[in-house]
Design a protein around this nucleic acid. Structure first.
Lengths: 150, 150
DNA sequence: GGTGAAACGTAGGCCGT
DNA sequence: ACGGCCTACGTTTCACC
C-alpha cells in the first residue's frame, strides 16, 4: 500500500468534511491545479482509500426517534453460529452497525428505530427469535455529544 | 417539520448511498427534471434534513489499526462533571463518537487509533487523568460485519 | 414542475520538469 | 512520476413559463 503524502492527507481531510466540494474548489484548498487534484482523487478512489461518498441525513427528519447500543452474547461460539447471527444482522434494517468485539459478549450493535414500540418489536421478534442469543443488554442513547461518523 | 414525500425519500436514499452523484444523474434516478431535483435537494439541505456530505475513508489506509468501544462511568453526576467530560471528548481526536447512554455507565465512546500502544496512551494519559472517571471498560473491535455509518 | 442558456466544473490529452 | 495548461464536453443554476 503506497504512502500518502501531505497533499493526499489534506485532500482526505477536506473530502471527509465536505464530500460534495467541486474538484476546482478542492484543488484551490490543497494548492494544486484542478487536473492534478482530480488525478489524485481518482487514484485515492481506485486504491479504495476513499471507498465512497455519503449524504449525512438527520435521523429525526426521517422518523428515527430511538437509538440504542445493544450488547449481544451467544451461547455457542462456532463459526456457523456466528455466521448465522451476522447474516441476520445484515438483513435487519434497524441494525446500522454490528461489531464483533472482545470481552464478555461477542457483539455490539447500533440499532435505530422510530420509537420504543419499534424497539420492543426488534428486541423480541428479531433478536429474541434468533438461535444461540444468550444475553441482550440495551443501552439507550440519550444524547451524542460527539458523533464524527454521523 | 414539513413531511417528506416519496420523491424526497428516494432522493435521500440515493444520496445516502452516493453522495457525489451528479444532480442530473440523481434527477434521472428519481424521475424529475434536473432543476426540480436541485430545488428539492437545496430545500432538504436548508431544512437540515441533509446536514452535509462526507467521503468515506478506509481507516486502514490512514493508519488506523485499533478500534475500540469504551464504556465510561463517572463517579459524580452533576451537570458540570458531565460537561467537563464531554468537552474533553470533543477535544480528543482519537474519540470519534461519544454517546450519553442509559444503564450502568454514563458514556460509550468509539475510539480509533493506530495501534495498541497508542490505545494504551489514550487509556492512561487521556481517560486516566480526567476527574470523576470511575470505570473504564474497553471492547476491542475485531471485525465489523456491518457498518452502514462507516 | 419543466425549459433554456450562461456560467461553471470535469476529464483527458499533451507537454514540461 | 507528477504538475500545469488547454479544451471539448457535461453539469449546475436561475430567471422565466
Amino acid at each position: 500500500m503506497m504512502e500518502l503524502d501531505q497533499i493526499d492527507r489534506k485532500i482526505l481531510r477536506v473530502l471527509a468534511t465536505d464530500g460534495r466540494i467541486s474538484n476546482t474548489g478542492l484543488a484551490e484548498q490543497v494548492g494544486l491545479s484542478p487536473s492534478a487534484c482530480l488525478r489524485r482523487v481518482q487514484e485515492l478512489e481506485r486504491r479504495r482509500v476513499i471507498s465512497g461518498y455519503k449524504a449525512v441525513i438527520n435521523p429525526q427528519a426521517i422518523g428515527i426517534g430511538f437509538i440504542a447500543y445493544v450488547a449481544v452474547g451467544l451461547s455457542v461460539h462456532t463459526r456457523d453460529a456466528q455466521a448465522a447471527f451476522e447474516q441476520a444482522m445484515a438483513a435487519a434494517p434497524e441494525v446500522r452497525e454490528c461489531h464483533n468485539i472482545t470481552g464478555m459478549v461477542e457483539y455490539i450493535l447500533r440499532v435505530e428505530v422510530s420509537d420504543l414500540t419499534a424497539y420492543k418489536h426488534f428486541h423480541t421478534e428479531v433478536l429474541g427469535t434468533l438461535p444461540h442469543v444468550s444475553a441482550i443488554t440495551s443501552y439507550v442513547v440519550m444524547a451524542s455529544p460527539k458523533d464524527d461518523r454521523a
